[in-house]
Simulated scan of single mutants.
Amino acid sequence: MDNRTNLDDYLAGLGISEADEDEVTPPPPAPDASAEALPSEGLLNEDPKEVLERFLNALTSRMDDTLSVSVQQAEDALEAEITGENAAKLAGRDGRLLGAIEVIAYTVLAKQAGRSDLRVRIDVGGFRKRQADTLTKLAERLAIQVAKSGEPHELQPMPASERRVIHIALKEHPDVMSESVGEGASRRLIIRPRHG
């Protein structure tokens, strides 16, 4: 199986091609486009894990053929790990590239396997693990500060995945609680005293 062709098929199925990069709206598919570029009824029954694994292998082989991909099924998500000497570069600045890869992977999963109910979590070179550790330590420091001062602390807007880490870190904390406020990209966390 040619991974490069597969990626082109996925991107074509999403209405994306290398030629579309500068265009605002993608052109309609060419009349001679491969039938495999669009999902068919049979593909919707494909194993989501296999779909995600195939997509990520195709993507990483185009970027760096020394990278390897492993995908595990979790309770409500598929969790992928991309490893290799240069894997951490896929995180991009502040994890933005990794976030974009997750969005595309989720879209591919929804289109190819018909599974929009599964989350997609991808880690590259341990980036997400290090980020979660940093956020957990931040949550612990802020919890102490809020518990001592009795005053709530509002954090800067952050993605849902980062808010989730802090919510989990403080879920069982006896003195403080966390809540999300705001809408869209402005959604942020407030850590406040639990009693009072």
Rank of each mutant, 00 (worst) to 15 (best):
D2L: 02
A12G: 09
P31V: 11
P31E: 14
A33K: 06
S34M: 03
S34C: 03
E36V: 15
L38F: 09
P39Q: 12
G42N: 12
L44F: 02
L56E: 13
L56Q: 13
L59V: 01
L59Y: 14
L59I: 02
T60V: 14
S61W: 06
L67F: 01
S70F: 00
S70N: 07
I82M: 11
I82C: 14
T83G: 04
N86D: 15
N86V: 14
L90K: 09
L90N: 07
G92S: 08
R93I: 13
D94L: 10
G95Q: 03
G99Y: 03
I104A: 10
Y106E: 09
T107K: 11
G114V: 03
D123G: 13
A132T: 06
L135A: 06
A139S: 04
E140K: 06
A143G: 12
K148A: 15
E151D: 05
P152A: 08
P152N: 03
L155F: 01
P159I: 00
A160V: 12
R163V: 09
L170F: 08
K171C: 10
E172R: 12
M177G: 11
M177F: 08
S178G: 15
E179F: 02
A185G: 07
R188W: 00
R188P: 05
L189G: 15
I190C: 07
I191L: 03
R192K: 15
P193A: 14
P193D: 04
